[in-house]
């Protein structure tokens, strides 16, 4: 019975992805991509990875879809290029072969490498009980530090290149009542996800994405200016995540003699503090990446 559900879900995902890649009209393709993202999130819950499923639903389907929709009209019209059948066919054969090889390699190496016992062994020293948060912010905090660095670089690149301004004044008067209900709820959900992240599915990235959604609703309702001081403050908040992380890492170096090795008995306080800073910074970064403001934005 559950196998039937899995197979139906897999067919749905592949169908939506094929529609996203094949449909001629851009808006329809992006809509199919967002549906595929939500179905993928559902399938990852089936694979026992609810943390990742939350992130995929909020960031992979929601924010990426919003970014693509924003750009769909601005990028010039599609210029159909005639690609010959030999090229199409050989590309299809090569990509299918590559994907099949990958799947075969993974399927045949089942059970060789597993970090599960290693993580379970040291979980009590990490200060949190959700293994994914323990890996992200304690065992492999280096990866997360560099990930925040990537976000900051993208923020600086988008701020220096700049994109055209989005005109929210055409959205009309319904956005404000919507914001009045939705923004407080989203702030609540975001704080809940952040606090929950130490023991249950959730964490800084999911909370940051939800908070970014709240920020976008506020901007769309026209109550936050998209120029001047507000943008400068948002930029400082966005870049502060990297600064907080580096300061925490250096402080841990001084206290324990190991880079990013938090003192074990108070590790939970360190992780929650870093995650709270990261949530705000990720939210500000994602909002700015969507708005694409630069100092000399073209209007």
């Amino acid at each position: 019975m559950t196998a039937v559900f899995d197979i139906l879900l897999a067919i749905g995902i592949l169908g939506c992805a094929a529609a996203a890649l094949a449909v001629r009209e851009r808006t329809a393709a992006i809509a199919a991509f967002m549906v595929a993202g939500l179905l993928v999130a559902l399938s990852w819950v089936r694979l026992g990875a609810p943390d990742v499923a939350l992130a995929e639903a909020a960031i992979g389907a929601g924010l990426t879809g919003a970014l693509l929709l924003r750009s769909a009209r601005r990028l010039g019209p599609v210029r159909p290029r005639s690609v010959g059948w030999p090229v199409l066919g050989s590309a299809a054969i090569l990509s299918a072969a590559l994907a099949a090889t990958l799947a075969w390699a993974v399927a045949s190496s089942r059970g060789i490498s597993s970090y599960q016992s290693l993580v379970a062994e040291r979980l009590s020293e990490s200060g949190v009980t959700n293994p994914v948060t323990a890996v992200l912010l304690n065992f492999r905090a280096w990866d997360t530090l560099l990930e925040i660095a990537v976000l900051s670089v993208a923020l600086m690149l988008v701020a220096s290149v700049g994109t055209a301004r989005i005109r929210f004044d055409r959205l009309g008067e319904m956005m404000l009542p919507c914001a009045r209900i939705v923004v407080p709820l989203l702030v609540l959900v975001s704080g809940h996800l952040l606090w929950l992240g130490s023991s249950d599915p959730g964490g800084a990235f999911q909370a940051g994405a939800v908070l970014a959604g709240a920020g976008l609703v506020l901007v769309m309702s026209g109550h936050v200016p998209t120029a001047g001081r507000a943008v400068d403050i948002a930029r400082v908040v966005g870049l502060s995540g990297l600064a907080i992380f580096v300061i925490a890492a250096s402080a841990a170096q001084v206290l324990t003699g190991g880079f990013l090795q938090f003192p074990p008995d108070v590790a939970k306080a360190w992780i929650i503090a870093i995650e709270a800073g990261l949530t705000l910074s990720i939210a500000a970064t994602l909002v700015l990446l969507f708005l694409g403001l630069s100092r000399h934005s073209r209007s």
């Binding site: 990742v52 992130a55 995929e56 960031i59 992979g60 924010l63 990426t64 970014l67 693509l68 924003r70 750009s71 990930e147 990537v150 976000l151 670089v153 993208a154 923020l155 690149l157 988008v158 290149v161 700049g162 994109t163 990235f205 990720i282 970064t285 994602l286 990446l289 969507f290 694409g292």
Partner: peptide, 13 residues
Amino acid sequence: IVVLVAVTAALLA
């Protein structure tokens, strides 16, 4: 996932 959304935003800009 988080790195990809940053890359997507940069590429689109």
